[in-house]
């Protein structure tokens, strides 16, 4: 099977150092178990993705495009020529706009089937078929059997990346494919940038329409269902059990038993 892993120049979320995005490293691990994989990168500098060689790719193809250029046409051209059976990409970039739109643009242009948020890929029973496990969150999956070629984006719940091996990085090669004619498309939207400001997350169960004081009260648990720190000292075990089950049902992690419908008054969020 021919596999192409799309690589991008990422930034470390904390240090800001140039790194390979984690999900692309995970994609390399998924590809490693399946067949011959090459990396594909369109960007101004191939050094940004050299790390991928140490994670298991033997070869990376690099299409040079100017800084800020749109990588999509270059990738489309190269993928059309390569015609891989499987294209893997991270579900989002890391360190840029992080919009995750590039795989969709590629799939649309190349008429590839696109399966998002994949955590495992195995060869299917029939020739040219694949089975993909798609994350639905919290460990739930959708198992999709399909006939390739397919573009799959990788979800963070996929197996963690392999360790970087300096020796492998030394042995791998980056093949420059020259520069691609590209539209000098700047950002397609007029965005204004400024330092990130962390905003308060919504507190579940807080009255949304109320005043700031009401919301604060709800958040700190002075009133309402989000009351914190309910303490029962030396209760009767049966009573403790009832309290626990009621609490678990109230927060919705335990399915309400239809038999005990009497206490169905507890709201489920």
């Amino acid at each position: 099977m021919k596999i192409a892993v799309l690589l991008s120049a990422g930034r470390h979320p904390v240090s800001g150092a140039a790194v390979l995005p984690r999900m692309e490293a995970q994609a390399i691990r998924l590809a490693a178990g399946l067949g011959e994989a090459i990396g594909l990168h369109a960007g101004p500098d191939a050094a940004a993705v050299r790390e991928a060689l140490g994670l298991g790719l033997a070869r990376i193809e690099h299409v040079a495009i100017p800084e800020g250029g749109d990588p999509v046409p270059a990738l489309i051209a190269r993928l059309a020529a390569l015609a891989p059976d499987l294209v893997l990409a991270g579900r989002r970039g890391q360190g840029g706009a992080e919009s995750g739109i590039v795989p969709y643009a590629l799939a649309d242009a190349l008429d590839l089937l696109l399966i998002p948020d994949v955590i495992a890929v195995t060869s299917g029973d029939g020739a040219g078929t694949l089975t993909l496990d798609q994350s639905l969150g919290r460990g739930a999956l959708r198992r999709v059997s399909l006939r390739g070629p397919v573009l799959a984006t990788v979800h963070p719940d996929a197996p963690p990346p392999l360790a970087y091996a300096y020796g492998r990085a030394r042995r791998g090669s980056i093949d420059g494919l020259g520069s691609a004619p590209t539209l000098t498309a700047g950002p397609d939207m007029a965005v204004e940038e400024r330092p990130y400001r962390r905003r308060p997350k919504l507190v579940k169960g807080a009255p949304t329409g109320g005043s700031a004081a009401e919301r604060l009260k709800a958040a700190t648990g002075e009133s309402g269902s989000a009351a914190k720190g309910r303490l029962l000292v030396e209760p009767d075990p049966e009573e403790a059990a009832r309290e626990i089950l009621a609490y678990l049902r109230q927060i919705g992690v335990l399915a309400a038993s239809s038999g005990a419908s009497s206490d169905a008054s507890t709201p489920t969020p």
């Binding site: 930034r11 706009a97 939207m189 007029a190 965005v191 940038e193 400024r194 990130y196």
Partner: peptide, 14 residues
């Protein structure tokens, strides 16, 4: 948020 939550981008609603 963008660039690993180091910057935020503002735009008129599209």
């Amino acid at each position: 948020p963008a660039k690993g939550r180091r910057v935020e981008q503002r735009i008129a609603p599209g």
